[in-house]
């Protein structure tokens, strides 16, 4: 009886974990209707329609492998000061709450870029937060990929 209860609890926990991972994408969906915010959503369905063969624009960068593993891409940006600050605060809140790891932080003159990641066996999310003057852009890559897939993209 005890074993059955423990098994059922484990199943519930696994379900909740899966639901939490999807909740990361949903946390940003509220910006689809927000004022002074540009929201772009590209689903796996649309990516597959487009065909996975990427046309490289940067030398030595191959995005085909990672693109094939993406479930969706969300691009949120704002040039309005208050909306941009709110977007930045929300993103940092989510990153702190869900204990994302900091992959990279680049700070140059007027531009600051933070790249966060949360990758486990079933699901991966990479969030790139860019701040330039008063403009804030957040790009969320969500899918079934590993950190190696992300690093392999770049020039060696």
């Amino acid at each position: 009886m005890r074993r059955t209860i423990i098994t059922l609890l484990c199943c519930v926990c696994c379900t909740m974990t899966c639901m939490t991972a999807q909740a990361q994408v949903k946390a940003f969906e509220k910006y689809s209707d927000a004022k002074n915010v540009t929201y772009v959503y590209i689903s796996q369905f649309m990516l597959k329609l487009a065909g996975l063969k990427a046309t490289p624009s940067l030398p030595g960068v191959n995005t085909t492998n990672l693109m094939s593993k993406l479930d969706c891409i969300q691009i949120i940006s704002s040039e309005e000061k208050n909306a941009a600050l709110k977007l930045k605060a929300d993103t940092q809140g989510i990153v702190q709450k869900e204990k994302y790891g900091l992959l990279l932080q680049v700070s140059e003159e007027d531009e600051k870029v933070d790249i966060y990641y949360s990758i486990d066996k079933k699901h991966g999310v990479v969030i790139m937060l860019t701040q330039e003057n008063n403009e804030v852009t957040v790009i969320i890559f969500s899918g079934k990929f590993t950190l190696e897939d992300v690093i392999k993209m770049v020039n060696k």
Binding site: L58, V61, T63, L104, Q105, V126, M128, T130, F141, V150
Partner: peptide, 16 residues
């Protein structure tokens, strides 16, 4: 747009 986003990620990773 997807490629643009990925290239932006790649370029920032490259810088780092």
């Amino acid at each position: 747009e997807a490629e643009r986003a990925l290239n932006l990620l790649a370029s920032n990773l490259n810088r780092g």
